[in-house]
């Protein structure tokens, strides 16, 4: 009984929050790219589904190479994390 009431209250709050945010967002425009630096031309890619993948991967390798290599280390660390937790416990004598 108590739990059901709490759940109802939480659900109502969430629905209210969603409605309020929806109203706010649609009412007050997001300042989309209002503060872009005009001296810095962006590296844009043509919106064509046949080439977009190659273009984005080229961008990744050219501009984001530090992130990519760091990401490789993150993946390595994630594998080490899973191995650390999935290790088989040796029986102690």
């Amino acid at each position: 009984m108590e739990v059901a009431r709490i759940r109802l209250a939480v659900l109502t709050t969430v629905i209210l929050a969603i409605l309020i945010f929806w109203m706010l967002i649609v009412e007050y425009d997001f300042p989309a790219f209002k503060y872009v630096d005009p001296n810095q031309p962006p590296e844009l890619v043509e919106n064509d589904t046949s080439t977009i993948g190659q273009e984005v991967s080229r961008f990744l390798w050219e501009y984001r190479v530090i992130d990519l290599i760091a990401q490789a280390f993150v993946l390595f660390a994630a594998a080490a994390c899973c191995m650390a937790l999935l290790r088989i416990e040796e029986r102690k004598r």
Partner: peptide, 26 residues
């Protein structure tokens, strides 16, 4: 020096610390 580079290393720090906290899984 870049927010996303920060995020990549942040994830490295977070992931390893999750596993270290749960290290004594028994």
């Amino acid at each position: 020096g870049d927010f996303f580079t920060l995020f990549v290393f942040w994830e490295l720090m977070c992931l390893t610390s999750y596993a270290l906290v749960a290290f004594r899984k028994q």
